[in-house]
């Protein structure tokens, strides 16, 4: 007799009922519903009716807000990406043989990862304050420029991005450190015997062997950055003069869908983020062939 290819059909149905039911109610149906909403008009009170491409036409004809937010988000993601080389240097420093206090340093660098973004954003907003902020005081002491960092449209987004780097450093460090663990120490030693100094060894041995981890960290960093909401929401309050020029795409989504209650427009913005996220990730995977080497 031929053995049954699917001996567990009944059990799979029973055990998957709740998980898959939840997936349908809270994820798969919402996905479809968001797509439908983007082609609809109406409000929560009147209900929504599908009317065609009007919302999408609006997006391309006068969706300046959305494009601006999209640009801001990409700029933010690009700046936060600069945190990856910083994390690489720290990971390499921490990795040196015989270095004491490794877990002590790791703890300190990791703390921002576990702290609530809302809470640390408040601290940074205070530090960035134009009148009595700590940053201006420090910069003033060394003769640097001072300004109202998060109330100035020219600097607000960058100021938030610095916090983004600070928050993500610990995560980047952990993943890169795990990658370094798998680099065989014999290669470093061989380079050392050949007379390569620490800087030379970092660029010629460590970085090339670490490219798969660097790639992973970069992809995750960008995906995370595209979701930025909390930091901006707190650091730039609703009345901030820099807000209009600094909104990210998720911030705009929240504002349109849940403050102005324009759900169809919210759905359009959400779909734009999906397209952009997929596109940016696809580009990263394509570029990967040029610089990532798998040993």
């Amino acid at each position: 007799m031929r053995p049954n290819r699917y001996p567990d059909n009944a059990w799979a149905a029973i055990l998957l009922a709740v998980p898959f039911g939840g997936l349908v109610i809270f994820y798969l149906w919402p996905l479809l519903r968001t797509v439908l909403l983007s082609f609809s008009e109406g409000t929560a009170f009147t209900g929504y009716t599908i009317t065609g491409f009007e919302n999408w036409r609006q997006l391309f004809e006068n969706g300046d807000d959305v494009w601006r937010a999209l640009l801001n988000t990409l700029v933010y993601a690009a700046i936060v990406l600069l945190g990856v080389p910083i994390a690489m240097v720290i990971a390499a420093l921490l990795h040196q043989r015989g270095l004491g206090g490794r877990s002590f340093y790791r703890t300190l660098y990791f703390v921002p990862v576990v702290t609530m973004p809302v809470a640390v954003a408040m601290v940074w907003r205070y530090i960035y304050n134009g009148d009595f902020g700590l940053l201006n005081e420090v910069l003033d002491a060394v003769g640097g420029p001072t300004r109202a960092w998060v109330a100035d449209p020219d600097t607000a987004l960058y100021a938030v991005a610095v916090v983004g780097i600070w928050m993500a450093l610990g995560t980047n460090l952990i993943i890169l450190a795990a990658g370094l663990e798998s680099v065989p120490p014999s290669l470093e030693e061989a380079a050392m015997l050949d007379g390569a100094g620490p800087v030379r060894r970092f660029f010629s041995v460590t970085v090339p062997l670490l490219t798969p981890s660097i790639f992973l960290v970069s992809v995750l960093s960008v995906i995370g950055s595209l979701q930025m909401f909390d930091l901006l929401f707190i650091m730039l309050g609703r009345t901030n003069p820099a807000l209009a020029d600094s909104r990210t795409i998720v911030y705009l989504f929240y504002e349109e869908a849940f403050v102005r209650n324009d759900r169809p427009l919210g759905a359009v913005i959400a779909l734009v983020t999906l397209v952009v996220t997929l596109a940016v990730t696809a580009v990263q995977f394509r570029l990967q062939r040029r610089w990532v080497t798998y040993a």
Binding site: R5, Y6, P7, D8, N9, W11, A12, A13, L15, L16, F20, L23, F26, Y27, L28, W29, P30, L31, R33, T34, L37, L226, Q227, V250, F253, A257, F258, R263, G266, A267, I269, A270, L271, T273, L274, T277, L278
Partner: peptide, 30 residues
């Protein structure tokens, strides 16, 4: 387990993994 439609059902979960959370939020709220 070995069961029918394992592939498509698993794909359902993986698709959700790749989609940014905002796409679910409005209907979840509803």
């Amino acid at each position: 387990l070995r069961f029918r439609f394992r592939g498509p059902l698993l794909a359902g979960f993986l698709v959700v993994l790749m989609v940014p959370p905002q796409l679910f939020v409005i209907p979840q709220y509803e």
